[in-house]
């Protein structure tokens, strides 16, 4: 497969076939918490796309240029978390200084996603699957977009369901998990499509 085709396959399968939320169930906590309104979901989704794309590439560089040569691969969990947290903080400061509007849109969500497991997961998957730098970037962007797509769809559904008579015990997280389950079942349909990497 030519290089560009492979990048596309990685990207496509990150969005649909291997959607990080609906097939790996990562990033559930913020998915449940912030999917009440489309507006909030859009803010959080954008932040996740941005941070995942950037930290995917950044962590790849650090992993391959620092950790592997120094034989410190076992430190990757700590290092990845620190890189993600530091990146988020730095970005937040830069945004605050340069663009008030962007800060207003992403402001509260940036710190929130420091501890989003989907972002850490994307970095770890990238290592397990032996992606190159380009693939790591494509995978990060695709995973972020897939996550954003899922939370936006869920927010649309929950807005529509605001007045539904859900059984009392299932209100909130319960019905959200049921909806996510049905969506995950439907995403099984993508199985085997453009699967990239091992």
């Amino acid at each position: 497969m030519p290089e560009s085709m492979n990048l596309f396959a990685v990207f496509f399968s990150a969005v649909f076939t291997g959607n990080i939320l609906l097939t790996n169930y990562l990033g559930m906590c913020s998915f449940l918490g912030a999917s009440r309104e489309v507006k909030t979901a859009l803010g959080l989704g954008t932040a996740v796309v941005f941070v995942m794309a950037a930290t995917g590439a950044l962590n790849w560089l650090i992993y391959c240029l620092v950790l592997v040569p120094l034989d410190l691969v076992y430190l990757r969990f700590i290092v990845f978390i620190v890189v993600i947290a530091a990146f988020v903080q730095v970005v937040e400061m830069i945004i605050e200084r340069t663009s008030e509007r962007l800060h207003a849109a992403l402001g509260i969500f940036l710190p929130l996603i420091t501890v989003n497991c989907a972002i850490m997961g994307a970095s770890l998957f990238m290592v397990i699957r032996n992606y190159g730098l380009g693939e790591a970037f494509a995978y990060g962007t695709g995973s972020g977009l897939g996550w954003a797509l899922a939370i936006l769809a869920m927010a649309g559904i929950r807005q529509k369901m605001a007045k539904a008579r859900v059984p009392r015990g299932l209100e909130g997280a319960g019905i959200t998990l049921i909806i996510a389950g049905i969506m995950a079942l439907a995403f099984v349909g993508f199985n085997g499509m453009l699967s990239a990497g091992p």
Binding site: V38, A153, A155, G156, I157, I179, I182, M183, A186
Partner: peptide, 9 residues
């Protein structure tokens, strides 16, 4: 079913 999920959005 996928599009059912996206319809409200």
């Amino acid at each position: 079913v996928i599009m059912n999920g996206l319809a409200p959005l």
